Amino acid sequence: MPRPFPHRHLLGIDPLSAEDILFLLDEAEPWIDFGRQARKEDRRLAGLTQFNLFFENSTRTLFSFEVAGKRLGAQVANFHPGGSSVRKGESLIDTALTLNAMRPDVMVVRHNESGAPQQVAEVAGCPVVNGGDGTNEHPTQALLDALTMRRRKGRIEGLTVAICGDIRHSRVAGSNRKLLPKLGAEVRLVGPPALLPDDAGGAATFTDLDEGIKDADVVMMLRIQRERMEESVSGTLADFHARYGLTYARLDRAAPDALVMHPGPMNRGVEIEGALADDPDRSAILDQVENGVAVRMAVLDVLTRARRE
C-alpha cells in the first residue's frame, strides 16, 4: 500500500517535514514519463470532482491543475470570478460554502489575498490545495522547483540557490525559502533593498546581484510584479535590468554548471535575457512547466487517497 500522507490539505510548506516533501517528489517522478506517452490516461480519480477556484488570472498553474486532474480521470470544473456572483458582491466564504454544497472531492484555490485558501479549507468538506495566495505562498511551485533541481542537478542537499528579484511580493520565494532548507539547500535572497523581505528567515540577503549569485548552483529569477509593487521600484525597467537582470555575462559569476530557473511569466529583457531563458543547456524553465503537471498529479492523487479508500 502507498505510504499515507499525514495532511488533509496542502496550504503551505511549514507543516511539511522533509520526509513529506521527498515523498511528494518521489510520487511525482513516474508522472513525468507518463506525460510523455502518446496516450495519457489514468482512471484513479474517475468519479471524483475537482474544483479549480481561480480568483486571479493564471496560465501555468490553472492549466496544469486542469490537465493533471483530467489525466487522472477526474471531473474538472474551473471557477472564474468574472462570470460568477463574486461580481455581485458575494464573499469568499459564501462562494466556498456554495461550491462545497456541490460535494467536490478536492478544491484548488488561487486568490490575491494571503490566507484565502486557508479560509476555504476551514469550511470545505474536502482537501484544499493552495494554488497561490497573495504574497504568501505557492507550495506546488516550490515542489516542482525542487523536483526540477533534483532531476537536473542530481541532488538538492548541499546546493546553493540564489533567488533573485522581487522577493518581498513573491509567493514563489515565500514557499521556496521554506522548502529548500528543509532538504539541505542553502538559500540566498537577492534584490533591491525595497524588494527584500523584512524577515529573511535566516537566509543570507544581498543587494548586489553579482555578489549574490557568486558560485551559486541554481539562479532562480523572479518576475517583476508590476501589478503589486510598481511604487517599490525607482527608475526605469531598463535601469532594473542593468542592475538586476540576469545575462550570460553575469551568469559567469555563478558555478560553472549553474542552472537558471524562472517560475514565469517572464519579462524578457527585464529580469532575464531572452536568449539565456531559451538556452536548454543552462535554463530549466520549460522543465519546470513539465514537472509542474507531474507534481500536481501527485498532489491530487495523494490528497484524495483517503476518500477513494
Rank of each mutant, 00 (worst) to 15 (best):
L53R: 02
F54A: 04
F55T: 04
F55H: 03
N57T: 14
N57Y: 13
S58I: 06
S58H: 03
T59K: 02
R60E: 13
L62T: 07
L62R: 14
F63I: 15
F63L: 15
F63N: 15
E66G: 01
K70M: 14
K70V: 10
L72T: 12
Q75V: 05
G83Q: 12
S84N: 13
S84K: 14
S85A: 15
V86H: 12
V86Q: 14
V86D: 08
V86W: 09
R87H: 07
R87N: 14
K88R: 15
G89P: 06
G89H: 05
G89R: 09
S91V: 07
T98E: 12
T98V: 14
T98Q: 14
N100I: 13
M102T: 03
M102G: 03
M102P: 00
P104V: 12
H111G: 05
E113R: 12
E113W: 05
S114W: 02
A116R: 11
Q118S: 15
Q118V: 12
Q118D: 06
Q119K: 15
Q119H: 08
V128Y: 01
V129K: 07
V129P: 01
N130C: 04
G131L: 06
D133C: 03
T135N: 10
E137L: 12
E137F: 04
P139S: 09
P139D: 00
P139W: 02
T140C: 14
T140Q: 07
T140A: 07
A142T: 04
L144P: 05
T148M: 08
T148W: 01
T148S: 09
R151L: 15
R152W: 13
K153A: 05
G154E: 09
I156L: 11
G158E: 09
T160D: 05
V161T: 01
A162P: 04
A162M: 08
C164I: 12
D166S: 12
D166N: 04
R168E: 00
V172G: 07
V172A: 06
G174Q: 03
G174K: 02
S175E: 11
S175G: 13
R177K: 09
